[in-house]
Write a protein that binds this DNA or RNA. Structure first.
Length: 582
RNA sequence: GCGCUGAUGGUCUAGUGGCUAUGACUGAGGCCUUCCAAGCCUUAAACCCGGGUUCGAAUCCCGGUCGGCGCACCA
């Protein structure tokens, strides 16, 4: 049994992950988060919020998970989020139709299925596997379609990423942030991709959770005001160059920017932040690296892109976060489709006095002369030079037609104008997290099977399963265990339970089975601390606290125990300092 | 989508035409029990779905679903 199997088996048994729709046989690509899984996931998301929303100040928004067609026409998903496939009629093998004709035409990936079929037929392309005849090509779009409203309604799609919601709200966001760059927005939510063949458990889902930040920055200044925070942070960088050599290098983010390995400070800061976040939730430092996209795998509009990759036992290095400089691509795309300028007005520190050549067509005269064409004529005149305008009669071309304009209907002059700022289209830096993959990695990296000695010297060792979750993410933070199932111990135990719940801690009460069994149960779900109530408790009002990882125990007073546990979980108070060692 | 392969209580598993389905662990109730899966009693819980062959199917055949692996796909 490999680690994946062990973790998934535990996850199923203990209520972290279940196959969705199991009652009806299940469907590939969907998972339910059980009671503990759901809690663990929320804890991870909460730390993400703490990192991006509270600390970085990128406020969270919530846009619909269904989008209208225009949004995905602009984003390119309607046209581009699909691939032309083509199956062999004999061996049923499927191929990328555009790849089959790559050598025959210049731009195979721009052709539609009809054009592809034509080229396949003309060149008598056969199946590369068995030389069989190829069937008709078809588009495989990975978006879930739906209808908005009754009847045929309006075409809608389930969003394939949360990002678009933030681009669409750009003008509102800009106003909210008082039009000052940089600013950013975040979204945590479900996205949907109708994968052809989802596999690998929670690694590739049809419905999955993303946490994305879209940070809008000044295209002319990609420095980061707080870069000093991570300049000395050493990370595992797997740059394009390093990948050629096959060696991951340990290098500080400051040095990586200096050497030009990472395109700029702002991107490097985001890598630092991701590194910080992943370690905080319990990803092992030596199983985490940042891999640069190779030139040919990077989206054409991106300047630089780095994936955070986590090493897993079965799947090797898995991409869990993408950090990209998407430039102004998305805002421009939405500006084009929506016919709305998506830019921000940036005032200069000092207004510039600029001498310009200004053309002022006299519309009062042009109007009667050219009627409906007057506007087009005026526009044509505006782009002419002083020399051309000085003619007595000026010839311009409007809609392919030569038009002669008398010189006296247009004024022009050198003017000095005050320009106090300019419209700029911000560039977008996008950290995009796949929460489900991070969830699984957190479980796998926390999972351990260790041998512990038996009670007596001569007893055999036995295995204990343990999830060494960081205290902050553990779905149960403290277990309350009366040592014996007796009324006089149960009563104070229940009291302590409510004391801890008052403090907002995640508490579980368990009085079934022997104490050893209950410790094992709690180790297996990663509960960091267990509190036992015994007969000494009735005498002196103290309880035993047991530490999950070391299995050590201390004795501490009931009075104020909720503050003690809280401090150990959230304020890195040392376990040893919390009471008298036993 | 294709090929190979598998599917039995919550988990792991025995069973290869006669089943009223094996066992362990786990769960629940109780007894016992003063700190690391102890013991005893009681108890709950399964043949993936649909067809077919057969007197009879968990078992054989076909189709589907789900899982694993390989191919393809993963903007």
């Amino acid at each position: 049994m490999d680690k994946y199997e062990q973790v998934i088996e535990l996850a199923k048994r203990r209520g972290f992950l279940w196959n969705s729709f199991e009652l009806y046989g299940g469907t590939a690509g969907f998972y339910d988060y059980g009671p503990l899984g759901s809690t663990l996931k929320r804890r991870i998301e909460q730390i993400w919020r703490e990192t991006y929303v509270v600390q970085e100040g990128f406020m969270e928004i919530e846009a619909p998970t269904i989008g209208i067609e225009e949004v995905f026409v602009a984003s390119g998903h309607v046209g581009g989020f699909s691939d032309p496939l083509c199956e062999c009629k004999d061996c049923r093998e499927a191929f990328r139709a555009d790849h089959l004709v790559e050598d025959m035409v210049a731009c195979a990936d721009a052709l539609n299925v009809e054009e592809l079929d034509k080229i396949i037929a003309e060149n008598n392309v056969r199946c590369p596997e068995c030389e069989g005849e190829l069937g008709e090509s078809y588009e495989f779009n990975l978006m879930f379609r739906t209808n908005i409203g009754p009847g045929t309604g309006r075409q809608g799609y389930m969003r394939p990423e949360t990002a678009q919601g933030m681009f669409v709200d750009f003008l509102r966001l800009a106003r909210f942030y008082r039009e000052k760059l940089p600013f950013g927005a975040t979204q945590i939510g479900k996205s949907y991709r109708n994968e052809i063949s989802p596999r690998q458990g929670v690694i590739r889902l049809r419905e999955f959770t993303q946490a994305e930040a879209e940070i809008f920055i000044d295209p002319n200044n990609k420095k980061h005001a707080n870069f000093g925070r991570f300049a000395d942070t050493v990370v595992n960088l797997y740059s394009e160059e390093a990948q050629e050599k096959g060696i991951v290098e340990k290098i500080s983010l400051g040095e990586a920017v200096e050497k030009g390995t990472i395109a700029h400070e702002f991107l490097a800061y985001q890598i630092g932040l991701t590194n910080h976040f992943l370690k905080r939730i319990g990803i092992a430092a030596d199983k985490l690296r940042f891999r640069q996209h190779l030139k040919d795998e990077m989206a054409h509009y991106a300047i630089d892109c780095w994936d955070a990759e986590i090493e897993t036992d079965r799947f090797g290095w898995v991409e869990v976060v993408g950090i990209a400089d998407r430039t102004d691509y998305d805002l421009k795309a939405h500006a084009n489709v929506s016919k709305t300028e998506l830019s921000i007005y940036r005032e200069y520190s000092e207004p510039k006095m600029v001498t310009q050549f200004v053309v002022k067509p006299n519309m009062g005269k042009l109007g009667p002369l050219f009627k409906g064409k007057a506007k087009a004529v005026a526009d044509a005149l505006k782009v002419l030079t002083q020399e051309e305008l000085e003619q007595e009669s000026i010839t311009v071309t409007v809609d392919g037609e030569e038009v002669t304009v008398p010189g006296d209907v247009v004024d022009f002059a050198e003017e000095t104008v005050k320009i106090s700022g300019e419209n700029i289209i911000p560039h977008v830096i996008e950290p995009s997290y796949g929460i489900d993959r991070i969830f699984y990695s957190t479980m796998e990296h926390a999972f351990a099977e260790e041998m512990v000695g038996g009670k007596e010297e001569d007893e055999d060792e036995e295995a204990r399963n343990i999830l060494r979750f960081k205290k902050e993410v553990a779905p149960v933070q403290v277990a309350i265990l009366p040592l014996l199932t007796r009324e006089e111990l149960i009563t104070p135990a229940k009291k302590i339970e409510s004391q801890l719940k008052q403090k907002g801690l995640l508490v579980s009460y368990d009085d079934s089975g022997t104490i050893g069994r209950r410790y094992r149960r709690n180790d297996e779900i990663g509960t960091p601390y267990s509190i036992t109530i015994d007969y000494d408790t009735l005498e002196d009002n103290t309880v035993t606290i047991r530490d999950r990882d070391s299995m050590k125990q201390i004795r501490a007073p009931i009075d104020g125990i909720e503050d003690l546990v809280y401090e150990m979980i959230y304020m890195s108070r040392e376990f040893e300092s919390a009471g008298k060692a036993l």
